[in-house]
Amino acid sequence: MHLVVCAKQIPDPDTPPSAFKIDEATNSVVPAPGISPILSQFDGIAAEAALRIKESQGDDSKVTVISMGADSARAAIKQVLAMGADEGVLLNDDAFEGGDSYTTAKVLAAAINHLGDVDAVFCGRQAADWDMGQVGLLLSEELNWASAIIAKGVEYGDGNISVQRVLTDGFETVSTQLPAVVTVSNEFGEPRYPKLPQIMAAAKKTVTQFGASDLGLDPSDVGASGSRLKVERLYIPETDSNVEFMEGDTPQEQAAALVQKLQADKLI
């Protein structure tokens, strides 16, 4: 089996709100000093899901990790290689810049078609930067493959993939034919943590780079010029902080003060 993991490098979402800054002129996030970008967490979990299937299938299976991004995205690729993926693909081209979810899916789909023999693609449920949660589904439409989103568990058998999905109030197990796109959620569990020897081994694995022309893409169809959705304004919302702390010498007094406030405000 050939499994693909789509991995995106993003600004660390645990950046404290005080260090989170926006450049309103370019509608972009200013990298917080001293905080390195990371592999979007759900993509690490997607990699874990793909690797477990690979391991259950034995030696002739492989996992390829694909990332569209700047040269720095190699770090995200290396991380998935250290987890156990076999090969990496970096999709880096000026023409890809400034794109939306649609052009991202278009480029990823072109890369997957270029690889040729892919059975299943694993994405995160959403990239933890823009929080869109649509590239996996757009990819399945681009490729005309089946899809199952927000997976908590994934199993493979007899040419079908069975996915346990998280619903609003419960779970559902669906079976879908291959090829398919699966998006993975945090309920799946933690991804494995690579150890030093694996990190060293990852350094030796190949990362192939493709640009628009390698994938037969017209530069005007991708990136900013191919986008259908445009960010017109990016800003930090105001929060009104007028917190009133409950005074008191003992927890009892503080609790009593709070209950009084809540009663006065008719909240309880």
Binding site: N27, D131, R228, K230, V231, R233, L234, Y235, I236
Partner: peptide, 20 residues
Amino acid sequence: TKATRPCFGGNAMATYGFET
């Protein structure tokens, strides 16, 4: 049509326009 949505985990808001 303009659509506004939280992003970056709620740290930011973005307003989008549609080309299509």
